[in-house]
Design a protein around this nucleic acid. Structure first.
Lengths: 228, 228
DNA sequence: TCAAAAGTGTTGACCCTACACCCATGG
DNA sequence: CCATGGGTGTAGGGTCAACACTTTTGA
């Protein structure tokens, strides 16, 4: 077959990851300090180039694994960024992804990148159009967290109601009413209340819960839709 | 500056457009019949390759203008598709866009492409991953139509309440109650009721409306959010 | 016994849905 | 005068937001 495409322009394709974490108080993003040109020394999203043999999802996965050592992380593609001179070295298209990771997992951040967690409202300014990507990621996360039970990706497997509420407050950027929040969550009926208590935060101790994914899936296939 | 990127793989980048239209009854998409390889004779989305000198949005715009002759069309990027062998000729990344066009505009469909309008539920099967793109586009359109006043892009500038309701019914894929719909739309207070009537559909005639974009913008900057 | 966080229900306001009849007109 | 689509309002149910006190226990 003759190649009809041979006269078309090609481009470098990158993926850039907005990596969200939660420390029981603030929503954070993981940034790296570039020790290579261009923009050496500036803060940046973690990224990498798409290889011929992999999909975008696989590239994002690889990039993330390289930085955090984590597998099976929640990753969602956001959109493509394509300003012609967004990267001064060469025309590079970038596909932004966001990832949700549980900071308390034994995450071994690769020291090669001088990575650091920042509160989303205290992050330094970023290279290229990365700032714009972060803004978009936050808005997508806000939406998604209200329509899919993805919040649990950011929490340890066992968590308290307080932690869950703090997480949603951090994502949504607003305080929520404790009783209303708990009533709503309980109404969804997708959590499992354990017999175990977390004794770290109070003398009384607070019950631990887990997300019951099987029950959630069963309910979904029965017409249920998560709605916070 | 030395080029640090020179060993990285490059890829062809395409844009593919899901072009929506509305004929006062059904939501439609515009497909082209390929008269070139690969997949000659099959139905496909309209697409084209990204050039070095343009952004993705500009490429989508160009592709759309080439097919329909239209400028200033509502276009929104959806996401990238990247299966390694999605195009059998060469590794090609595609960014899907959807467009909303008003069929009654003097649209001159370029005959070079043997394009044809199909009801969204009666479209033929498409090449590559275009089917998947269409599904995603419909779901994004459904969401967007409930949170942004984009429906008007699919209607003539002057329209009746009946047309607007039929449009939303077509987008959402469900029948709506006439009085509730009208109450809700009037509650938004972003339409201008004209003195003019459309006499084509009934003896009594029905009032024409236009979308009052200025009022809408003013309300938005005053904290209002469109919600159907 | 006291400090500190956990846990627990109710009420009023508002919004959404269901629903049916009269109007205006051209033929 | 009649057939056809256009236009209009209300009542009941459900959902959401506001709100405060009691419990537990380690120090």
């Amino acid at each position: 077959m003759i190649n009809l495409y041979k006269d078309e322009d090609k481009a470098l394709v990158a993926v850039d990851c907005i990596i969200f974490g939660f420390d029981n108080e603030n929503l954070k993003i993981l940034l790296i300090k570039r020790d290579f040109e261009p923009e050496r020394g500036k803060w940046s999203l973690m990224g990498g180039f798409l290889k011929k043999s992999e999909t975008l999802d696989e590239a994002a996965d690889r990039v993330l694994r390289h930085l955090t050592g984590l597998n099976n992380v929640y990753l969602e593609q956001l959109r493509g960024y394509s300003k012609v001179d967004r990267d001064p070295v060469e025309r590079t298209l970038s596909l932004a992804y966001y990832a949700l990771i549980n900071i308390s997992d034994h995450t071994e951040i690769n020291e090669e990148y001088s990575a650091k967690w920042f509160n989303i409202d205290e992050a330094p300014s970023l290279i290229f159009d990365h700032q714009e990507m972060v803004r978009y990621a936050i808005s997508r996360l806000r939406y998604r967290a209200q329509t899919k039970p993805i919040g649990f990706e950011l929490l340890p497997q066992k968590f308290t109601m307080k932690q869950l509420q703090s997480l949603y407050e951090a994502i949504l950027g607003e305080k929520l009413d404790k009783r209303n929040f708990i009533n709503k969550i309980n109404g969804l009926d997708i959590l499992l209340k354990l017999d175990e208590k977390d004794m770290n935060s109070s003398r009384k101790g607070s019950y631990l819960y887990t997300f019951d994914e099987l029950k959630y899936r069963a309910k979904v296939s029965d017409g249920f839709t998560f709605k916070l």
